[in-house]
């Protein structure tokens, strides 16, 4: 047997440190979470747009958990988003703006619950089959939610949307204001908490096993991993995240409509994640910002035709850039600052 290399960690303690180092907070992560809240002061007139970006980012994060880490291709996350939106909107409406029924956090909990149950039930359909089948089943399910929202007029208000959504003040103190200040802080706080959960998941044994399934499901099974249970779990969690994002949008815009469920919602969120880079956790958040700002600028130049430029950028991304913005940054970093050891993806 070959002699042990001197440079290699010779004992468990160093190996353990190197493993744990993957979960340490990096300077750029801390910087990110300082910059985002400070936008409250830097761009006080853009808070509504910023809230929307945070919510889109959360939706994209939910796809990242499912696609980026577990490798489940989905076009149906908009369905869970819509379920969450309607759940939260109806809670707020029924409570007529007063606690306890209209309490925003309760609304989010219900949104997560409804979307989570739907996710759990449909996960068994998604387990089977190839990427193609998964794409079509998830798309079909989202379309069914969309169609239901359109047709169940007595509950959802049909295509006109649900009016009279009045969430109670957040924690009984902060009422949603016209400038979107409370909305921004509220959305940011929820996003941050859920981000911490997502981050912990991806750095845990559970998260590692998801990446293993994505990498080689056959091998994952032969080491005794309950592959299907893990996939059901992450798909359900992803649905809950999407449901919360939908609930947030309904509460902060005080509105819910079938538009929140439509195909382009799922497609946009997927594009956002691809823009930012899947499998990094931050890809969805950064992608959401770039996407919405780009949408704003391009819409100003060519109103209503900005889809063309979006399509073009996406085309370039698929053809020439692997891994989105963060993938590009990582490749650039690796070129100029080659990593000391040839480490695997975090």
């Amino acid at each position: 047997m070959s002699a042990v290399d001197v440079k290699a960690p010779a004992n468990g303690a160093t190996a353990r440190l190197s493993l744990l180092a993957g979960a340490r907070w990096r300077w750029y992560e801390i910087a990110f979470w300082i910059v985002v809240p400070s936008l409250y002061f830097l761009a006080p007139t853009k808070l509504t747009l910023l809230s929307e970006i945070l919510i889109l980012g959360l939706l994209a994060l939910s796809i990242d958990l499912v696609l980026g880490f577990a490798g489940i291709v989905t076009l149906g996350q908009g369905g869970f988003f819509g379920l969450g939106a309607y759940a939260a909107a109806l809670m707020a409406k029924w409570g007529a703006g007063t606690a306890p029924l209209s309490d925003p956090l309760l609304g989010l909990a219900v949104a997560a619950g409804v979307a989570g149950i739907a996710g759990f039930l449909t996960s068994f359909l998604v387990l089977r089959g190839s990427d193609l089948t998964r794409l079509m089943v998830t798309l079909g399910l989202a379309l069914i939610v969309d169609e239901t929202a359109n047709k169940m007029k007595w509950l959802t208000g049909g295509s006109d949307g649900l009016q009279g959504v009045l969430p109670a003040p957040v924690l009984g103190v902060w009422d949603f204001d016209l400038y979107g200040r409370v909305a921004f802080c509220y959305a940011l706080a929820v996003l941050f908490v859920l981000f911490l959960v997502a981050r912990q998941i991806t750095k845990s044994p559970f998260g590692l096993s998801l990446q293993a399934i994505k990498g080689n499901p056959l091998r994952a099974r032969t080491i005794g991993m309950p592959v299907n249970a893990r996939l059901v779990a992450i798909y359900t969690i992803g649905a809950m995240f999407a449901g919360v994002a939908g609930g947030l949008l309904a509460q902060t815009t005080q509105f819910a409509s079938p538009d929140m469920v439509a195909f382009h919602r799922s497609a946009d969120a997927l594009l956002i994640l691809i823009f930012g880079g899947a499998g990094y956790l931050y890809g969805g958040l950064i992608g959401a910002g770039v996407f919405r700002v780009m949408q704003d600028i391009l819409s100003n130049i060519t109103p209503q035709y900005w889809q063309f430029w979006l399509g073009l950028v996406l085309l370039m991304l698929v053809l020439f850039v692997r891994g989105g913005i963060l993938g590009l940054l990582r490749a650039t970093r690796d070129r100029f600052f080659p990593p000391s050891s040839d480490k695997a993806a975090p």
């Binding site: 497609a267 979006l310 399509g311 996406l314 085309l315 991304l317 698929v318």
Partner: peptide, 8 residues
């Protein structure tokens, strides 16, 4: 993604 781009 590519075909969605073409659609858009």
């Amino acid at each position: 993604l590519f075909s969605i781009a073409i659609i858009f």
